[in-house]
Simulated assay, not measured.
Amino acid sequence: MTVPHPAGPRPVPPVLAHPLDSPVHAALTGPHAHFAERRGRVLRYPADVTPWNAVPDAPLAQDWADAAALAGPGGSVTLTAFHEPPPADWEILFHAEGVQMVDDGVDAAPDAEAVRLGPADVPEMLELVGRTRPGPFLPRTVELGTYLGIRRHGTLVAMAGERLRPPGWTEISAVCTDESVRGQGMASRLLRAVAHEIRERGETPFLHAASANTGAIRLYEALGFRLRRRTAFLSALVPPGLGTRNPDDRTGRLEQTGR
C-alpha cells in the first residue's frame, strides 16, 4: 500500500555549526569534556591548563555573571572566535584580530630529532615560552595533547604541540624556537611532526595566529595551511564586585564535568 506524503513542504534539517566556528565550546563538550568547568551556559578550562572560555554567541547578562563567577574576583575571561564587546564595566585587557587556518595539504611527517615532552619537562617548556612568547602556555597545558621538542646540547630550544580538540580536529599551538637556533627550520619540522601525530588519529590539524604576525602566517601558508576564517581574541577583566561565588547557592555552583 502506498502511504501518501503529508501535505505541505518537507521539514528542512537544521544547519549544524562547524566545530571550528566555536572551537573552545566544541572541544569542551567533546574530546576535552573531562577538563570542562561549567556554570550556566559558560564553559572554561581550568585556570592552570589554558585560559580559554566559551560563552554563547549572544551572551546575556547572566552569562557574563557566570563567566565572572568562574574566573573569580580579579580574574579575567579570555575568548576566541568571539566578536561581541563585553559589558561596559568590563575592562578589556587585550583585543586582537586573528586568523584560523586549516590543513590543506601539509607535508606531515615524523621528525627523527623530535622528542616527546611530558609533565617532567614543564619547567624547561615554561622557560622556553618565557623567552619566545608564542602565546598562553601554563603549568598543565602539556596535558591537552602531544608536545614535541628539539634539544641542543641538552637544552630545549624548540617545541610545538596540541591544544584545542574540537571533534575531528586538533589545534597546533605553542610553536616556538629559541633565538639561538632560528633560521634552521625547526619550527617547520615540528609543525609537520605534530601534524603527523594528529593525522595518525584520523583528525585534521588547524591553528590560530594573530593577523599582525605576518611572518608566521607566511610560514603556515608555505607549509600547506590555508585561511578558513578571520577571528578575534579578547581578554577582559572581571569588574569589581563580580566573580564572588556563594557556597550555599547550589543552583549556581561551579560544576566540573567529565571528572
Rank of each mutant, 00 (worst) to 15 (best):
M1I: 12
M1W: 02
T2H: 13
T2A: 08
V3C: 03
P4M: 09
H5A: 13
H5F: 06
H5T: 15
A7H: 13
G8P: 14
P9E: 09
P13W: 12
P19M: 07
D21V: 08
S22E: 15
L28G: 02
T29P: 03
G30M: 11
P31C: 04
P31H: 06
F35M: 04
R39L: 12
G40L: 03
Y45N: 04
Y45L: 11
P46A: 04
P46G: 01
T50W: 08
A54W: 06
A54F: 05
V55F: 00
P59Q: 05
D66H: 05
L70G: 02
G74P: 12
P87E: 00
D89R: 13
W90T: 06
L93Y: 00
A96S: 06
G98L: 10
V99C: 04
V99F: 10
V102W: 01
V102A: 04
V102I: 15
D103F: 11
D107M: 02
P110H: 03
D111P: 05
D111L: 03
A114W: 15
V115W: 00
V115C: 08
L117T: 10
G118D: 15
P119R: 13
P119D: 04
M125P: 09
E127Q: 12
E127T: 14
G130L: 08
R133T: 13
G135P: 05
P136E: 01
P136H: 09
L138Y: 14
L138K: 13
P139N: 07
P139Y: 02
R140M: 04
E143F: 03
L148Y: 04
R151F: 03
R152T: 07
R152C: 01
H153P: 00
H153D: 11
G154E: 08
T155D: 11
L156P: 13
E162Y: 07
W169C: 11
T170V: 15
E171D: 12
E171W: 11
I172G: 03
V175N: 02
T177D: 04
E179V: 15
V181C: 03
R182L: 05
Q184H: 11
G185V: 09
L190W: 07
R192F: 00
V194S: 05
A195Y: 04
A195F: 06
H196G: 01
H196N: 09
E197V: 11
E200D: 14
E200T: 15
R201P: 01
G202M: 14
G202V: 15
P205R: 12
H208P: 10
H208E: 05
A210D: 05
A216R: 10
L219T: 10
E221T: 15
F225H: 02
R228M: 15
R228K: 13
R229P: 05
R229G: 02
A232P: 01
L234Q: 08
P239Q: 07
G241F: 00
R245P: 02
N246Y: 00
P247C: 09
G252K: 09
L254I: 14
